[in-house]
């Protein structure tokens, strides 16, 4: 997250295409890589908007049922699709005008190679693996216990700067995992009468 203080290619002062950038700098999120992310999302939003508008136009108008032509089901989604496409176009066009050099893309790519990104990716993999694979394959308590155990061990051993001894992490994580798995299952099944997956 350590990008240089200011973007040299961004036009200074009046006419700057990036509006509302507060002078006090409220965070580390802005910068060249954000401009590139905006370009990408702008294009995606434009495509989604056009697709939605098209799908709404093609939507049945229910003429057979003789509904009022102003109340066709596609009306509102169509308008929303157009609005989204406009927003996407503005977002993309604005980012194209800023920073024409390659630094933006490089920095945009670099944000995916940081430790933070690895931590997010690990969390996502664990979360998806638990919800999509473990739940349904193992009994709920066991699936939850396995997830909690894996999560704690991964973050306390692999991503920690000064990890505890392995046996301690494994032991405490195991105890917590079983307590969580069993408690959640029992509480929801007997307390709230939920049939767990």
């Amino acid at each position: 997250m350590s990008h240089e203080s200011s973007d040299p290619s961004a036009p200074p002062g009046a006419g700057g295409p990036v509006p509302d950038q507060p002078a006090d700098g409220n965070g580390d999120g802005d910068g060249a890589h954000m401009v590139r992310a905006d370009l990408l999302t702008g294009v995606i939003l434009l495509v989604i908007g056009v697709a939605v508008a098209w799908a709404s136009w093609e939507m049945p108008r229910l003429e057979v049922r003789r509904i009022h032509p102003a109340t066709v089901p596609g009306l509102v989604p169509g308008l929303l699709g157009i609005a989204l496409a406009i927003c996407g176009a503005i977002l993309a066009a604005r980012s194209v005008r800023v920073a024409a050099d390659g630094a933006g893309w490089r920095r945009f790519g670099a944000t995916f190679l940081t430790t933070s990104a690895a931590r997010v990716a690990a969390t996502m993999v664990l979360a998806l693996g638990y919800a999509l694979v473990l739940v349904g394959w193992l009994p709920f308590w066991a699936a939850s216990a396995a997830f909690v155990f894996a999560f704690i061990v991964l973050f306390e051993r692999v991503f920690a700067s000064s990890p505890h001894p392995l046996w301690r992490t494994v032991l405490t994580a195991g105890v917590q995992a079983i307590i969580v798995g069993v408690t959640v299952s029992v509480v929801f099944q007997t307390g709230f009468l939920v049939r767990l997956p």
Partner: peptide, 23 residues
Amino acid sequence: RERLMPVVYVLCVVGSFAIAQRM
């Protein structure tokens, strides 16, 4: 947070499942 977040996530899964009991 390493100890808390997995528990919160388990609750997220149960919580979203439990309302209509569907995956």
